[in-house]
């Protein structure tokens, strides 16, 4: 990297748009990570501390326990969270990145 590019790099780092982009990206990543942790360790917590809850029947007279849809939903919601991220990234993050990049190349 040449010294001119380095200076520009430093300037970009101080650019409010770039700073906003970084903090937005980190916020989204951390919120979604925390949601996933709560989701999964919530499920593990139920197994560890409240087995009777998971053993309840879903319907009166039926056989399916509440634990089965909860486990399946843990899988499905995990996938939906990745969908939320990709939706955000494709619609908002990519265009922010493009804006900041245009600034560098376009001057």
């Amino acid at each position: 990297m040449s010294s001119i590019a380095k200076k520009t790099a430093h300037e970009i780092l101080e650019d409010p748009d770039f700073k906003a982009l970084v903090s937005k990206k980190n916020t989204i990543s951390i919120i979604l990570t925390v949601l996933e942790l709560v989701l999964y360790f919530g499920f593990v917590g139920l197994i560890a501390y409240n087995k009777p809850f998971l053993a309840q029947k879903l319907n009166e007279g039926g056989s399916t326990t509440i634990g089965i849809p909860i486990a399946v939903m843990t899988i499905v919601i995990s996938w939906i969270l990745t969908m939320v991220y990709i939706f955000w990234a494709n619609s908002s993050y990519d265009s922010d990145v493009k804006n900041v990049k245009d600034k560098i190349i376009g001057g």
Partner: peptide, 21 residues
């Protein structure tokens, strides 16, 4: 039975973490 299902959930939940971080 159900205990097997617990494992299968555990094998999946790392993927969103890969995505976000």
């Amino acid at each position: 039975g159900y205990d097997g299902l617990i494992y299968s959930v555990g094998w999946l939940v790392g993927w969103p973490i890969i995505m976000f971080l």
